[in-house]
Protein backbone atom coordinates (compact mmCIF):
# COMPACT_ATOMS: atom_id res chain seq x y z
CA UNK A 1 0.00 0.00 0.00
CA UNK A 2 1.42 3.37 -0.94
CA UNK A 3 1.92 5.81 1.89
CA UNK A 4 -0.82 8.32 2.71
CA UNK A 5 -0.07 12.04 3.07
CA UNK A 6 0.24 11.56 6.81
CA UNK A 7 2.58 8.59 6.41
CA UNK A 8 4.79 10.55 4.01
CA UNK A 9 4.94 13.33 6.59
CA UNK A 10 5.74 10.75 9.28
CA UNK A 11 8.59 9.36 7.18
CA UNK A 12 9.93 12.85 6.54
CA UNK A 13 9.87 13.53 10.30
CA UNK A 14 12.49 10.79 10.72
CA UNK A 15 14.96 13.16 9.05
CA UNK A 16 14.71 15.60 11.96
CA UNK A 17 17.61 15.61 14.37
CA UNK A 18 17.87 17.06 17.84
CA UNK A 19 18.85 20.73 17.71
CA UNK A 20 17.89 21.21 14.08
CA UNK A 21 16.53 24.50 12.72
CA UNK A 22 13.99 23.49 10.10
CA UNK A 23 11.90 25.16 7.41
CA UNK A 24 8.72 23.35 6.38
CA UNK A 25 7.07 24.19 3.08
CA UNK A 26 3.38 24.53 2.33
CA UNK A 27 1.12 21.45 2.02
CA UNK A 28 2.25 17.99 3.18
CA UNK A 29 5.53 19.41 4.59
CA UNK A 30 3.45 21.42 7.10
CA UNK A 31 2.08 18.11 8.44
CA UNK A 32 5.60 17.03 9.40
CA UNK A 33 5.27 19.26 12.47
CA UNK A 34 2.68 16.79 13.83
CA UNK A 35 5.21 13.94 13.87
CA UNK A 36 8.27 15.45 15.52
CA UNK A 37 9.60 12.71 17.84
CA UNK A 38 9.24 13.59 21.52
CA UNK A 39 12.94 13.29 22.30
CA UNK A 40 13.92 15.53 19.38
CA UNK A 41 13.96 19.29 19.90
CA UNK A 42 13.66 21.20 16.64
CA UNK A 43 13.00 24.88 15.98
CA UNK A 44 10.75 25.70 13.06
CA UNK A 45 11.56 28.70 10.91
CA UNK A 46 8.95 30.56 8.89
CA UNK A 47 10.57 32.55 6.11
CA UNK A 48 8.25 35.53 6.56
CA UNK A 49 10.25 36.31 9.70
CA UNK A 50 9.91 33.97 12.66
CA UNK A 51 11.88 31.33 14.50
CA UNK A 52 10.14 29.07 16.98
CA UNK A 53 6.85 28.77 15.13
CA UNK A 54 4.09 27.39 17.34
CA UNK A 55 0.97 25.39 16.42
CA UNK A 56 -2.25 26.86 15.04
CA UNK A 57 -3.74 29.22 17.64
CA UNK A 58 -6.82 28.55 19.75
CA UNK A 59 -9.80 30.38 18.25
CA UNK A 60 -9.55 33.17 20.84
CA UNK A 61 -5.84 33.70 20.15
CA UNK A 62 -6.01 34.32 16.40
CA UNK A 63 -3.81 37.32 15.55
CA UNK A 64 -3.65 38.91 12.08
CA UNK A 65 -0.05 39.97 12.78
CA UNK A 66 1.02 36.36 13.27
CA UNK A 67 1.02 34.13 10.20
CA UNK A 68 3.29 31.55 8.61
CA UNK A 69 4.70 31.56 5.08
CA UNK A 70 1.53 29.83 3.88
CA UNK A 71 -0.43 32.81 5.27
CA UNK A 72 -2.10 30.63 7.90
CA UNK A 73 -2.58 31.95 11.40
CA UNK A 74 -0.14 30.43 13.91
CA UNK A 75 0.93 30.95 17.52
CA UNK A 76 4.17 31.85 19.25
CA UNK A 77 6.24 29.89 21.76
CA UNK A 78 8.30 31.13 24.73
CA UNK A 79 11.45 30.76 22.57
CA UNK A 80 10.04 32.53 19.49
CA UNK A 81 11.78 35.42 17.81
CA UNK A 82 10.74 37.76 15.00
CA UNK A 83 12.90 39.44 12.38
CA UNK A 84 12.74 41.05 8.96
CA UNK A 85 12.59 39.21 5.63
CA UNK A 86 16.21 40.20 4.99
CA UNK A 87 17.32 38.63 8.29
CA UNK A 88 15.18 35.60 7.57
CA UNK A 89 16.81 34.96 4.23
CA UNK A 90 20.24 35.69 5.64
CA UNK A 91 19.60 32.64 7.84
CA UNK A 92 18.45 30.63 4.84
CA UNK A 93 21.04 31.74 2.30
CA UNK A 94 23.85 31.83 4.86
CA UNK A 95 23.49 28.09 5.46
CA UNK A 96 22.20 28.43 9.03
CA UNK A 97 19.06 26.36 8.49
CA UNK A 98 19.77 22.63 8.82
CA UNK A 99 16.87 21.14 6.91
CA UNK A 100 14.13 22.20 4.51
CA UNK A 101 11.21 19.97 3.57
CA UNK A 102 9.28 21.08 0.52
CA UNK A 103 6.84 19.86 -2.09
CA UNK A 104 7.51 19.44 -5.80
CA UNK A 105 5.77 19.08 -9.13
CA UNK A 106 8.75 17.34 -10.75
CA UNK A 107 12.16 16.05 -9.68
CA UNK A 108 14.92 14.88 -12.01
CA UNK A 109 17.53 12.18 -11.54
CA UNK A 110 20.30 14.69 -10.85
CA UNK A 111 18.25 16.34 -8.13
CA UNK A 112 16.73 19.22 -10.09
CA UNK A 113 13.49 20.42 -8.60
CA UNK A 114 10.53 22.19 -10.21
CA UNK A 115 7.73 23.54 -8.05
CA UNK A 116 6.88 27.13 -8.91
CA UNK A 117 5.15 27.47 -12.24
CA UNK A 118 3.49 25.74 -15.20
CA UNK A 119 3.98 27.98 -18.24
CA UNK A 120 0.67 29.17 -19.66
CA UNK A 121 -1.32 27.52 -16.88
CA UNK A 122 -0.26 28.52 -13.42
CA UNK A 123 1.71 31.54 -12.36
CA UNK A 124 2.12 31.82 -8.66
CA UNK A 125 5.80 32.47 -8.20
CA UNK A 126 8.69 30.87 -6.40
CA UNK A 127 8.24 32.71 -3.13
CA UNK A 128 11.18 31.65 -0.97
CA UNK A 129 11.66 28.21 -2.54
CA UNK A 130 14.64 29.14 -4.74
CA UNK A 131 16.44 30.63 -1.75
CA UNK A 132 15.65 27.62 0.41
CA UNK A 133 16.93 25.00 -2.02
CA UNK A 134 20.06 27.07 -2.71
CA UNK A 135 20.92 27.82 0.90
CA UNK A 136 19.66 25.16 3.27
CA UNK A 137 22.09 22.39 4.22
CA UNK A 138 19.77 19.46 3.50
CA UNK A 139 16.78 19.56 1.16
CA UNK A 140 14.09 16.89 1.51
CA UNK A 141 11.54 16.82 -1.29
CA UNK A 142 8.08 15.33 -0.87
CA UNK A 143 5.69 14.56 -3.71
CA UNK A 144 3.26 12.00 -5.12
CA UNK A 145 5.20 9.56 -7.22
CA UNK A 146 3.03 10.12 -10.29
CA UNK A 147 0.72 12.83 -11.61
CA UNK A 148 -3.08 12.48 -11.59
CA UNK A 149 -2.91 10.92 -15.08
CA UNK A 150 -0.34 8.38 -13.76
CA UNK A 151 2.51 9.97 -15.72
CA UNK A 152 5.84 9.91 -13.88
CA UNK A 153 7.02 12.99 -11.95
CA UNK A 154 10.47 11.61 -11.12
CA UNK A 155 12.10 12.20 -14.50
CA UNK A 156 15.32 12.09 -16.51
CA UNK A 157 14.98 15.86 -16.79
CA UNK A 158 12.28 18.27 -15.57
CA UNK A 159 10.30 19.96 -18.34
CA UNK A 160 8.87 22.62 -16.02
CA UNK A 161 10.94 25.70 -15.09
CA UNK A 162 13.39 24.76 -12.34
CA UNK A 163 13.40 25.97 -8.76
CA UNK A 164 16.96 24.75 -8.31
CA UNK A 165 19.48 22.57 -10.08
CA UNK A 166 20.95 19.49 -8.38
CA UNK A 167 19.53 20.54 -5.02
CA UNK A 168 17.52 17.53 -3.76
CA UNK A 169 19.21 15.43 -1.07
CA UNK A 170 16.31 13.08 -0.35
CA UNK A 171 13.07 12.38 -2.23
CA UNK A 172 10.11 10.87 -0.38
CA UNK A 173 7.12 9.84 -2.46
CA UNK A 174 4.05 7.76 -1.64
CA UNK A 175 5.91 4.75 -3.09
CA UNK A 176 9.38 5.00 -1.61
CA UNK A 177 12.46 6.97 -0.62
CA UNK A 178 15.44 7.95 -2.79
CA UNK A 179 18.71 9.21 -1.40
CA UNK A 180 20.78 11.45 -3.72
CA UNK A 181 24.51 10.74 -3.54
CA UNK A 182 26.62 12.98 -5.78
CA UNK A 183 23.43 13.92 -7.68
CA UNK A 184 22.55 10.25 -8.31
CA UNK A 185 19.43 8.72 -6.78
CA UNK A 186 19.54 5.49 -4.82
CA UNK A 187 16.29 3.78 -3.87
CA UNK A 188 16.63 3.11 -0.15
CA UNK A 189 13.07 2.30 0.96
CA UNK A 190 9.81 1.02 -0.46
CA UNK A 191 6.37 1.72 0.99
CA UNK A 192 4.57 -1.42 2.25
CA UNK A 193 3.34 -3.73 -0.52
CA UNK A 194 5.02 -1.64 -3.21
CA UNK A 195 7.28 -3.80 -5.37
CA UNK A 196 10.52 -2.82 -7.00
CA UNK A 197 8.83 -3.56 -10.34
CA UNK A 198 5.99 -1.15 -9.61
CA UNK A 199 8.20 1.74 -8.55
CA UNK A 200 10.51 1.15 -11.52
CA UNK A 201 7.58 1.17 -13.91
CA UNK A 202 6.30 4.46 -12.48
CA UNK A 203 9.69 6.18 -12.55
CA UNK A 204 11.33 7.70 -15.59
CA UNK A 205 14.51 8.74 -13.76
CA UNK A 206 17.39 6.31 -13.69
CA UNK A 207 18.23 5.15 -10.21
CA UNK A 208 20.17 2.43 -8.47
CA UNK A 209 18.81 0.20 -5.73
CA UNK A 210 20.44 0.11 -2.33
CA UNK A 211 21.61 -3.44 -1.56
CA UNK A 212 20.07 -3.08 1.87
CA UNK A 213 16.75 -1.88 0.45
CA UNK A 214 14.33 -2.09 3.31
CA UNK A 215 10.64 -1.78 3.74
CA UNK A 216 9.44 0.98 5.93
CA UNK A 217 8.31 -0.39 9.26
CA UNK A 218 5.49 1.53 10.79
CA UNK A 219 6.50 3.11 14.02
CA UNK A 220 3.65 4.80 15.75
Amino acid sequence: MPWSREEIAQRAAQELEDGFYVNLGIGIPTLVANYIPEDVHVTLESENGMLGMGPFPYPDEVDSDLINAGKQTISELPQSSYFSSADSFAMIRGGHIDLAILGAMQVSQNGDLANWMIPGKMIKGMGGAMDLVAGVNKVVVIMDHTAKDDSPKFLNACDLPLTGSGVADLLITNLGVFDFQDQRPILIELAPEVSLEEITEKTQAEFTVCPKLGRHLHTQ
Partner: peptide, 15 residues
Protein backbone atom coordinates in the same frame (compact mmCIF):
# COMPACT_ATOMS: atom_id res chain seq x y z
CA UNK B 1 4.58 43.33 -16.71
CA UNK B 2 5.92 41.01 -14.07
CA UNK B 3 9.45 40.47 -12.88
CA UNK B 4 9.65 37.42 -10.65
CA UNK B 5 12.27 37.77 -7.99
CA UNK B 6 12.99 35.04 -5.42
CA UNK B 7 11.84 36.21 -1.99
CA UNK B 8 15.27 36.24 -0.37
CA UNK B 9 16.79 37.96 -3.37
CA UNK B 10 14.01 40.55 -3.22
CA UNK B 11 14.63 41.25 0.47
CA UNK B 12 18.37 41.47 -0.10
CA UNK B 13 17.96 43.71 -3.16
CA UNK B 14 15.98 46.15 -0.99
CA UNK B 15 18.48 45.88 1.85
Amino acid sequence: ELEFCPQGTLAERCR
